[in-house]
């Protein structure tokens, strides 16, 4: 007997899926607004992507092809583990090719290749509240979202500019969605923020531990916060990829020896292998 016998398709029971599906529809109807949901304990720990896994489990079906990435790569251990989870509990096809996937679950990156209207990207979110570092009380931040009271965030950004000469947020860079809701894009590098804007694919965000779901429909305005005299800049390491030579992809820095030797390679492994052909 397999250890997984006795579980429903995609692990969650149907009532839980309906609850998550209702939350997803409201999330799509109010882009960038966090919807509380009855997040369940998953067989993977909180912090490993339980929110993303629940969202994927609620949407995935036999016709889907799933790609899972962590840090842009398909072969990182957590990506492997989540991909296996769905392969065994939902029996769905999996792929490492961005172009072939209908659902992409991700931690910390958006693929380099532009996503299409037929794809859905599911983000794993550790902390859905963009104001959490400025105001720890969720009762208070909820009120701030209700009133569009985002002055605290602008003050923080302004203080950064005064102190460092630039906005010193390099990942999980806050965005304004549909000109109304301040949103955490999850800890993707700020380099990926421009991809959020008017993306053709539906973007779903799941935070399991914090029990929140939110979404960005296709072609929705997503603006990275900035100032007129300090516009948002997406930056990357100023090197070509050491494997494929790309000058436009986001790079990992690999330490190659004890003398400070460095190699820069694409973080998006599928993009890199396509680009190397």
């Amino acid at each position: 007997m397999s250890a997984l016998d006795g579980y429903n398709f995609a692990y969650l029971d149907e009532q839980t899926k309906r609850m998550i599906r209702r939350a997803l529809l409201k999330a799509v109807a109010i882009p960038g607004h966090q919807i509380p949901f009855g997040s369940r304990e998953m067989p993977l720990p909180y912090g490993w992507g339980t929110g993303g896994i629940q969202v994927t489990a609620a949407i995935i079906g036999p016709a889907d092809t799933l790609k899972v990435i962590d840090q842009g790569a398909d072969d990182t251990t957590n990506a492997v583990s989540i991909r296996r989870f769905f392969a065994s509990l939902a029996g769905v096809a999996t792929t490492t090719r961005t172009a072939e996937a209908t659902i992409i679950q991700t931690r910390h990156r958006i693929p380099e290749r532009a996503l299409t209207v037929d794809q859905i990207i599911v983000y794993q979110v550790p902390q859905p509240e963009p104001l959490s570092k400025l105001q720890p009380s969720r009762a208070e931040t909820r009120r701030m979202h209700a009133l569009s009271e985002y002055g605290l965030m602008h003050v923080k950004l302004y203080e950064d500019v005064a102190r460092f000469g630039e906005i010193a947020i390099s990942y999980d860079y806050p965005v304004m969605v549909n000109h109304r809701h301040l949103m955490s894009p999850s800890p993707i590098p700020a380099f990926d923020n421009p991809k959020l804007h008017r993306m053709a694919a539906l973007q779903l965000f799941g935070a399991g531990r914090e029990k929140r779901i939110y979404a960005i429909p296709p072609h929705t305005d997503v603006k990275s916060l900035d100032f007129e005299d300090h516009p948002f800049r997406a930056s990357r390491a100023p090197h070509p990829c050491g494997i494929c030579g790309s000058n436009s992809s986001y790079l990992d820095e690999v330490v190659t020896d004890n003398e400070g030797g460095r190699l820069f390679v694409c973080s998006d492994t599928d993009y890199c292998s396509e680009n190397s052909k």
């Binding site: 720990p45 909180y46 912090g47 490993w48 339980t50 962590d70 840090q71 842009g72 990182t76 957590n78 931690r107 910390h108 990156r109 550790p126 460092f164 000469g165 630039e166 010193a168 390099s170 990942y171 999980d172 800890p187 993707i188 590098p189 700020a190 380099f191 531990r209 930056s235 990357r236 390491a237 986001y250 790079l251 990992d252 820095e253 973080s267």
Partner: peptide, 25 residues
């Protein structure tokens, strides 16, 4: 325990973006 221990999962994309930011500043 999940959130404390998740710090051991790879964060090199975010760390890289911090590295770039600190170098630049």
């Amino acid at each position: 325990t999940g959130f404390v221990e998740h710090l051991k999962l790879p964060h090199y994309v975010d760390f890289q973006s911090e590295l770039e930011s600190i170098r630049r500043i």
